[in-house]
């Protein structure tokens, strides 16, 4: 029975996923992560901060910047640990636990470093950092990069683009919600319900990107 040989042939990864660098593919990843499969509006990742931090434009930008920053670092950390540690040691089943620990300690570390060396940046991003550990967009992008079998380069590109997509959704939402303050909303829909309705309309708009970059 050489079933295992057969299996290894059949389930091995598409090769472009692993090596080489292709500008077209990179653009496709960027467009997909920002628009077509927008993390918030299409993949439903990072909804909590999307609703919680989108009341003010300033805080939306701050949160977005913090997410892009941590997402990139978390992808670097998780990709490296997964491919250089867990895969060779055949411990891939520890992926979830390893990734969440990486993210949690990374957030702590970034917080401490910022506090020490860049108080100004800490002032700006500090309050958002603790919220990020439980932002599923961060763990989501780390897991997606592994599932899609992206190389480190593509993974980082995907992470940054996903963070930009998240920020875009957040900032758009913040702008809309500031307008919404002045709008005449039926009392029953005030607050969260109308926020979801607005998000739904934005999501429809983002459906229009389907087809861009395939």
């Amino acid at each position: 029975m050489s079933g295992s040989a057969l299996l290894s042939i059949l389930i091995s990864a598409p090769e472009t996923g692993n090596g080489g660098f292709d500008l077209g593919r990179m653009m496709a990843i960027i467009i997909a992560a920002i628009f077509v499969n927008n993390f918030v509006l299409s993949r439903f990742l990072g909804i909590c901060p999307f609703l919680g931090v989108s009341k003010q434009l300033d805080s939306a930008l701050g949160m977005g910047a913090a997410v892009i920053f941590v997402m990139t670092l978390a992808t670097l950390g998780s990709w490296t640990v997964y491919n250089l540690l867990l895969v060779p040691m055949e411990l891939t089943y520890l992926r979830t636990i390893a990734f969440i620990l990486i993210i949690a300690s990374l957030v702590q570390l970034v917080e401490m470093i910022l506090q020490k060396f860049s108080p100004a940046l800490y002032q700006a991003l500090g309050i958002f950092l603790p919220l990020i550990t439980t932002n599923c967009a961060i763990l989501g992008v780390a897991v997606l990069n592994i599932d899609e079998k992206y190389s480190l380069g593509y993974s980082l590109v995907n992470a940054i683009a996903a963070g930009i997509g998240f920020t875009l959704a957040l900032v758009l939402m913040a702008g809309l919600r500031q307008r919404l303050e002045l709008a005449d909303v039926p009392p029953a829909l005030k607050g969260k319900p109308v926020a979801f309705l607005v998000a739904g309309v934005m999501s429809i708009a983002f459906l229009g990107f389907a087809g861009l970059g395939g």
């Binding site: 057969l6 042939i9 059949l10 091995s12 598409p14 090769e15 472009t16 996923g17 292709d22 077209g24 593919r25 653009m27 496709a28 970059g213 395939g214």
Partner: peptide
């Protein structure tokens, strides 16, 4: 042939 990004096709021909 590995044309554009719309398709990444890879064969394992048996």
């Amino acid at each position: 042939p590995n044309p554009y990004y719309s398709v990444d096709s890879f064969l394992r021909v048996v």
